[in-house]
Write a protein that binds this DNA or RNA. Structure first.
Lengths: 342, 342
DNA sequence: GATTTTTATACAACCGATTGCAATATGAAA
DNA sequence: TTTCATATTGCAATCGGTTGTATAAAAATC
């Protein structure tokens, strides 16, 4: 446990007979310092095993070099990809990450926001919980001028910057596809319509029906929580319907997989009896049988774009106040679960 | 962008006509400070909107209050659970987390270790990459007396503290179960045998065969990377074997699912022709058909235990040097994919 | 009433890097 | 040779808590 003393810029300064100011600047390649001196400083630093002290630096600079990430859950493929994208960019830019998840509770989300605020993150990237309606817990950031970027689950009304996909288009496409496969009684399994992503998908669904002269029935819209259990529940409700629906758009692949499984257990043939489209292009979709049609959207790009915008803003290269909404590409992948016409 | 001035202990001190030292102690409920004064200090702090400055504090205390977590990947259910467990405990104890993943590359793992070292984490929780053989990149931590706890993927020889499951027992149990179902030609699909978890599972497999007088054949052991692709490859290799194997123990549920899928596509009946057991009890196992038998082990407990031990050590409540190995419970879950006898 | 002990608070150094401004040196232009 | 611009480097304050030690006041002991 012989904790060796840490090497500081003062040690380097002493060894080279320079001032600590020069060493500090030299380590950052400050142009005011002679090129040769800079080299000597950096060499000596390496030699002595110097490591930069973020705390001293942050304290002085009044910046934390840390970005907070606030997500609803960590357990989906999609979120993991987004995080990977964020991490890639922030790491390159030398920022640290603090990741917090709210377990789909807006109360916990608010607590996490406050917590990250106290940790003094330089910026925040967030995706809202199902039921977050009021963004007041982000007001703290606003007040202090700390930039916040939302992705995927956002508040549409707000003027904050957001990175999203065109959920309306996705909903429309999925529904249109089912209609083209001959479906007339299409169930929509989705979550809280107050959340933008579900509201938009719902709107796309409804409009596609309308454009094809198919009546919209409220009973075909099942609002769930998109959990494992919900897949079973949705299936049971579908089975009780008479006549049986012939199509289902389930806005989450995992739930869709469970639902499909349950329907099959009850003798329903997929896609002959009911054609199914999921959402997210989770790896699971290719493993189950039949393989699941779904909407693909690139989490990693979403993460990268959100992070890049935030960092450019922090570096003063751009201003997110000028960019309101960034829309990422997305598209329908047709697999067996919905393909009735070759 | 009216960045209001931050409130410091000096502001509180001034308002209450106390010294900053007293305020600092008061905020931490230091017993030397009069109870009444403490209350006044804390009230004023709240009133003024004071937030503690970690950087100043860390700088002075020479502690970061941060724990590093180094994992091979973020994409599995298991790892996510472990992280949830770690997060729960560390958050309770007021520690921050920095999470780094090595993408199964020991080179990147080493780079991450160095990085976390420079970030001055107070402690480290790590699970090794497939091919990490030499732990020298953890030497930095050792030298500085920074505690490191390994979990799941560990180096058995090392004297560092580890939290693991009994992989030998699991391998034995799974194999024994397949034998009891009448399997005689059992394939093992696993990863790099240099990594403890796979070595032990392999040993359990081999011993179970031996104890049941079933010859061990090297050709039945397929070393893969447990990716999606590997499931397909394994299936193709199995299909080429003559006679066809009648059982498979695949040490990862996702790979097992893909493998099973591929086998089914080629007309193999599960479990009638080949009985299959996976590993990890991933959610996927209950969705696929037939449902997958697997080994369940509680990631969340592993995370909690690792974190708790580390924190107790940091707080001086215990010393991890005294605890070498902690073994978590695990057990076989039998589902349809391996059940041939009623 | 004098002395010791306890309680409560203040003083001041410290953690390590950053940065505006001053100072010095060097070289070029006048 | 003097003057001015430019290139380098140093000075010293600053960021905001923490903590060992000193001090003062109050309480307890003899």
């Amino acid at each position: 446990m012989k904790t060796k003393k840490e090497v500081t810029i003062y040690d380097i300064a002493q060894k080279l007979e320079l001032s600590s100011a020069t060493v500090s600047r030299g380590l950052q390649d400050h142009p005011a310092i002679n090129k040769n001196t800079r080299k000597r400083i950096q060499e000596t630093a390496r030699e002595l095993g110097y490591r930069h002290n973020n705390f001293a630096s942050n304290l002085r600079k009044q910046k934390t070099n840390t970005i907070g990430v606030l997500v609803h859950e960590l357990n989906s493929n999609f979120i993991t990809s987004v995080l990977a994208g964020i991490e890639k960019i922030t790491t390159e830019a030398g920022y640290d990450l603090i990741i917090a998840h709210s377990s789909e509770s807006s109360v916990k989300e608010a607590a996490n926001a406050v917590n990250l605020f106290h940790k003094r993150v330089d910026g925040l990237i967030a995706s809202l919980a199902f039921d977050t309606a009021d963004l007041s817990h982000f007001g703290l950031f606003e007040e202090k001028g700390i930039p916040v970027i939302f992705f995927d689950r956002v508040e549409e009304k707000g003027e904050s910057t957001k990175v999203i996909i065109d959920n309306y288009k996705c909903g429309y496409q999925a529904t249109q596809h089912l209609i083209e496969q001959g479906c007339k009684r299409i169930v929509l399994v989705t979550a809280n319509l107050k959340r933008n992503v579900y509201a938009q998908r719902h709107k796309g669904y409804a409009d596609a029906l309308y454009d094809n002269n198919i009546p919209f029935h409220k009973k075909y819209v099942l609002i769930k929580d998109l959990s494992e259990q919900c897949g079973v529940e949705a299936a049971m409700e579908i089975l009780k319907m008479n006549p049986l629906p012939d199509g289902a758009f389930i806005t989450n692949d995992f739930s869709a997989a469970v639902c499909m499984q349950t329907l099959k257990d009850h003798g329903v043939r997929i896609p002959e009896d009911i054609a199914i489209v999921g959402f997210n292009n989770d790896a699971i979709g290719k493993i189950i049988e039949p393989q699941l049609s779904t909407i693909d959207y690139p989490g990693i790009d979403m993460g990268e774009i959100a992070a890049r915008n935030l960092i450019n803003h922090l570096k003063g290269l751009s201003n997110i106040k000028h960019t309101n909404t960034i829309v990422i590409r997305s598209n329908l992948i047709v697999r067996e679960s919905s393909q009735r016409k070759k």
